[in-house]
Simulated scan of single mutants.
Amino acid sequence: MAETAAQSPIDRLLAIMAQLRNPDGGCEWDLAQDFSTIAPYTIEEAYEVADAIAGGDPAAICDELGDLLLQVVFHSQIATDDGLFGFDDVANAISEKMERRHPHIFGETKTDDVRLQWEQIKAAERASRASDGPTSALSGVALSLPALLRAQKLQSRAARVGFDWPDVNGPRDKIAEELVEVAEAASDAERHEEIGDLLFAVVNYASHLGVDAESALRDANMKFARRFAAMEARAGGSLSGLSLDVQESHWQAVKASERP
């Protein structure tokens, strides 16, 4: 499908997806998909964008953003086929939302506290979507978020209405308390619950220190993977069969090699 002079890149992509979903000559796999089957790919593509950004390769970022854009177009075409909404509706909805949330830019409302205004507008939006009474301050925090990121968002929402420790001592003491409760847990179910509470407390502690827990853990994962690969290289390609003491010596050597 060649792009005509009058056809924009986004119109070309929309036309490609419409043809892929066309019962007359379309792609069998694309035609078989629905919102639920495509959702995992949408999440995966978002992570691949983040990986490309972390890698600092503009070409990779461009490529992965294209894959993510395809997901929006795919969902929009599914909705069009079902008579629900179309791509233009998606684009108009987000445009209206951004203008609504930035009255100091697109309207006449001026404020010295843009962040507070943003949160007030979002709260009003949540309230307007409620059909049965007032909504919770935690409404709208997606269940499908990674657990660590969702914990951050839940805690941030709670803190906005004053439900949080006044200083860093509270969450630090909470971690110590949760560690004791983990040690005292008598069953797998109790340990499961207490470990969850411990992780939740660590996320809160990180927030009080001004640390993004999701980003910190992501960096820690990358550091561990890098160091582990270096250990394997020092050991001739594999750590299998080496004693823990020998493996630890390789670990310490790798750490020492990273010091300036």
Results as ranks from 00 to 15, higher is better:
Cys27Met: 05
Ala137Tyr: 06
Ala186His: 08
Tyr41Met: 13
Pro146Cys: 07
Phe163Cys: 06
Pro58Met: 13
Leu179Gly: 07
Ala79Val: 04
Ser8Thr: 15
Ala2Gln: 13
Trp251Lys: 15
Val182Asn: 03
Pro103Val: 04
Gly241Ser: 04
Asn169Glu: 13
Leu217His: 05
Ala201Met: 08
Leu70Met: 10
Trp251Ser: 14
Asp11Ser: 12
Leu209Met: 15
Gly210Tyr: 04
Thr109Ser: 00
Ala93Ser: 15
Asp219Ile: 04
Asp164Leu: 03
Thr4Arg: 10
Leu14Trp: 12
Gln155Leu: 13
Ser76Gln: 11
Ser187Pro: 07
Asn204His: 08
Gly170Thr: 04
Gln247Leu: 02
Ala185Asp: 05
Ser128Met: 07
Ala253Ser: 15
Glu64Pro: 09
Ser156Val: 01
Phe224Pro: 00
Ala229Gln: 14
Phe35His: 14
Leu149Asp: 10
His104Glu: 15
Asp63Leu: 09
Gly55Glu: 13
Ala15Val: 06
Arg126Met: 01
Asp63Arg: 10
Arg100Trp: 00
Asp173Pro: 00
Ile16Ala: 14
Val161Leu: 08
Gly66Asn: 04
Ala256Leu: 13
Ala59Tyr: 10
Ser95Arg: 13
Asn169Val: 04
Leu217Glu: 13
Thr80Tyr: 07
Arg115Ser: 03
Leu209Ala: 12
Asn92Phe: 06
Ala225Pro: 06
Ala158Trp: 01
Ser95Phe: 07
Ala206Thr: 09
Asp82Ser: 08
Asp24Met: 12
Ser207Tyr: 02
Leu143Ile: 07
Thr109Phe: 02
Thr111Ala: 03
Ala142Trp: 08
Met17Gly: 01
Gln117Arg: 08
Ser207Arg: 14
Ala220Trp: 02
Tyr47Ala: 09
Glu248Gly: 11
Arg172Ser: 11
Arg160Gln: 15
Ala233Trp: 03
Leu14Asn: 11
Glu48Val: 06
Leu217Arg: 02
Glu177Tyr: 04
Lys174Ser: 06
Pro9Thr: 04
Asn204Val: 00
Phe163Trp: 11
Asp164Gly: 02
Glu119Thr: 01
Glu125Gln: 06
Gly241Trp: 05
Leu116Arg: 14
Ile53Asp: 01
Ala123Gly: 14
Ser128Ala: 15
Gly237Val: 07
Leu199Lys: 02
Ile175Glu: 07
Asp82Met: 08
Arg129Ile: 00
Asn221Leu: 10
Tyr41Asn: 15
Ala93Trp: 00
Val246Gln: 12
Arg227Gly: 02
Asp63Glu: 12
Leu65Pro: 08
Trp29Glu: 12
Asp112Gly: 10
Pro146Ala: 10
Ile53Leu: 12
Tyr205Asp: 11
Ile78Thr: 06
Ala183Asp: 11
Phe163Gln: 12
His102Ala: 07
Val73Thr: 10
Ser128Leu: 06
Asp245Arg: 08
Leu31Gly: 08
Leu13Asp: 14
Ala93Phe: 00
Asp112Thr: 11
Asn221Val: 06
Met231Glu: 14
Arg12Phe: 14
Ala130Asp: 01
Leu13Pro: 00
